[in-house]
């Protein structure tokens, strides 16, 4: 390989101008202008296509993708923040509700206690009043009964005395005697 390379190089540099189509092709000077012109035309065309059409297009697609990804990430972040905020709001609301429930419970308990106290007191009062009334009615009943007993006793005494003596005793004497005996028994 190296041999043919070197040999070809030698012949190319020696004979290029004399013998057109021979020698080592990459060193044939007479082909240079054609290649340069070809290269200039094709490369300029490539450059124009690449810089005007191809790169803006591909770059635009890549940018659009990057933007979409960034947008999606930002959106996801936003949603995440939002859900976190909602969670926090929910938790604080829950705590507030719990506190309120406790307050209401305590208040209700107090109210109930107060009302039951009042009820008890009213009941006791009414019972005491009823007791007093009952005692009073007993007392009057007894007094009435006592006075009836005195009348009956006086009548009975005068009747007994009339039976025994044959004459009716004076009412006043009988009553006094009955009272005296009642006081003695009572």
């Amino acid at each position: 390989m190296a041999e043919s390379h070197g040999e070809a190089k030698g012949t190319a540099s020696a004979h290029t101008e004399a013998e057109g189509g021979h020698g080592f092709p990459p060193f044939q000077k007479e082909t240079f202008p054609s290649q340069i012109v070809s290269l200039v035309i094709t490369f300029v065309a490539l450059y124009v296509i690449v810089s005007r059409l191809a790169l803006p297009k591909v770059g635009g697609v890549i940018d659009a993708r990057q933007k979409a990804i960034d947008g999606d990430l930002a959106e996801a972040q936003r949603l995440n923040d939002e859900s976190e905020a909602a969670m926090k709001a929910y938790e604080s609301e829950l705590a507030a509700a719990r506190a309120r429930a406790q307050a209401i419970g305590a208040e209700t308990r107090e109210k109930l206690a107060a009302s039951s106290d009042a009820e008890r007191k009213a009941l006791e009062d009414s019972l005491a009043a009823k007791l007093a009334a009952a005692e009073k009615s007993i007392a009057t009943t007894r007094a009435t009964a006592m006075s009836n007993v005195r009348g009956i006793a006086a009548d009975a005494a005068s009747a007994i005395v009339q039976q025994l003596t044959g004459k009716a005793p004076a009412g006043k004497t009988v009553e006094a005697a009955v009272d005296a005996s009642l006081k003695g028994t009572a």
Binding site: T42, A45, L46, V50, L55
Partner: peptide
């Protein structure tokens, strides 16, 4: 003489391949 050679043809082929590939590529996300 400026000749259109096989070299020119392959240069053109390279340009056509590159341009075709780049311009034919989709724009999908």
């Amino acid at each position: 003489e400026i000749a259109f050679t096989n070299s020119t043809a392959y240069m053109l082929l390279a340009v056509v391949l590159i341009a075709g590939m780049m311009l034919a590529a989709g724009r999908a996300l």
